[in-house]
Design a protein around this nucleic acid. Structure first.
Lengths: 253, 253
DNA sequence: CGTACCATTGATTACTATCAACGCGCGTGG
DNA sequence: CCACGCGCGTTGATAGTAATCAATGGTACG
């Protein structure tokens, strides 16, 4: 499987410490730095990037980080907490577009647009690194590696979107969803087999285009099959191989 | 990939000569030129762009334009015919990702990647404009308008992908699909209420994540409801307003 | 002229949405 | 302090919809 959000990010944390700034915790704080290093940013560029970034205060659960229609002024990278992005369709119904874990970036696709096309809502107490524009854009224009990186992230999101859209089996979607989370946690050096899924069943269901009851039932089924152990939002993955298999099979063998 | 791509754009689309014509896009051959004009490319840049483009020979139905894994060397814009993009998942099943009409561009998301992530297959006899890289990339780097345009197209694709992913009602998906086609034909100045859908029911079904039989049934239902008139692959839209409504309503009112 | 492939239609099955009821934890306010 | 409401999560019963299996006719192509 491709793993929706993830692939690259090796567990390359402390590389940043090289240019002074106190070593950021064990898990890296921000995808941007890591990936910039991978992408070949030189030290000068990296230092410049570091000067650009700001830290936001924290948002509480339910608070908007930005709304659809807000002018685009910055990219956000989650430092702590969790965020969902969503859109409200013409019928007034919410459509959850994605979840963002610590270290992941939101708002990339608005880089060259004038405004955001969706809401970002904190699911827990959440804080960010903020990369302001147009300063950031100018920087990117001068640093090809950054430019390329932005593009690649965009392309990646594009592939991701169509991923969950694909299969229709509820089991498959949920399994793929769990494995995706696991992989993304692992990519940041966080616990990948035992973690809190920070969002409600309703949000998961909406994201996967299922009914909340169905999600709940699938969880129960997986639990009784010893594939996972779930208690409220506390999750443990017991058989990743099989989950992965379920996630891929629509109906084949 | 055979075919003689050597010519230098002989029958240049008349739209290009529009120093002040304003003829706009009535039957323009290639989206790139039109949109570049909209995006504010100056004449110098436009002329340069024209030098870069090549024409490909034609591909027959079933032939590959490129395959997943092929090194990325160019963006393709459909001149005539139709193309589907697809991916083969680990189970060996085909997943249709999209269809491309005359004037539309394929391969954008590979701009800064090293290789294509999906196959492109001609559904009919199809020919292309070909924008070679890295020449094109260097050009884009020098022309901010082009750069912005590429990004915007990428973002647009991203939004589109999640569009069809959303709802689950077969009627809604098919209706949205038809309206999407219609709008895209209209955008290129082609007949928008009466056209040939160039792909098989199987491809449509795969794209919409439905069974082929279901697509067939929905067509029949729409036909008997006087929403469309369909005979084989010849389609006429009789009630676009209602189709649009069906396409958006999942279950609201 | 036969062999695929495509499209349509019918019968049956399987899955998931929906409706409904219940328990739980939490914050507010009486 | 406790009652209450509210959002969340689980589970059961039911119904609707689309997948699947199956059969048929049309058409393009060698």
């Amino acid at each position: 499987m491709r793993a929706a959000h993830s692939t690259r990010y090796p567990s390359a944390p402390s590389v940043l410490g090289s240019n002074g700034s106190g070593a950021a915790s064990s898990g890296s704080v921000c995808a941007f730095f890591d990936d910039c290093i991978d992408a070949g940013c030189n030290q000068l560029e990296l230092a410049e990037l570091q000067c650009l970034v700001e830290q936001t205060g924290s948002f509480r659960a339910g608070e908007h980080v930005f709304r659809a229609g807000d002018p685009f002024r910055a990219i956000f990278a989650v430092r702590r907490g969790m965020v969902k992005t969503r859109r409200i369709d013409n019928g007034g119904r919410e459509q959850v577009l994605g979840f963002y874990l610590p270290g992941e970036m939101i708002g990339l696709d608005a880089v060259y647009a004038e405004q955001f096309s969706y809401d970002a809502v904190a699911l827990q107490t959440t804080s960010f690194c903020r990369f302001p524009f147009p300063a950031m854009g100018e920087f990117a224009a001068r640093a090809p590696a950054v430019q390329r990186y932005l593009f690649r992230m965009l392309s990646r999101d594009l592939g991701t979107a169509s991923l969950l859209a694909g299969d229709h089996a509820a089991d498959a979607r949920v399994a793929a969803f769990l494995m995706d989370l696991s992989i993304r946690y692992a990519a940041r050096g966080l616990a990948a087999t035992r973690f809190q899924l920070g969002m409600s069943r309703v949000d998961i269901a909406n994201y996967l285009r299922l009914a909340a009851e169905t999600v709940s039932r699938v969880f129960s089924r997986f639990d009784s099959r010893q594939l996972i152990k779930i208690d409220g939002r506390e999750l443990e993955l017991l058989d990743q191989a099989q989950l992965c298999a379920i996630g891929q099979s629509l109906r084949s063998g």
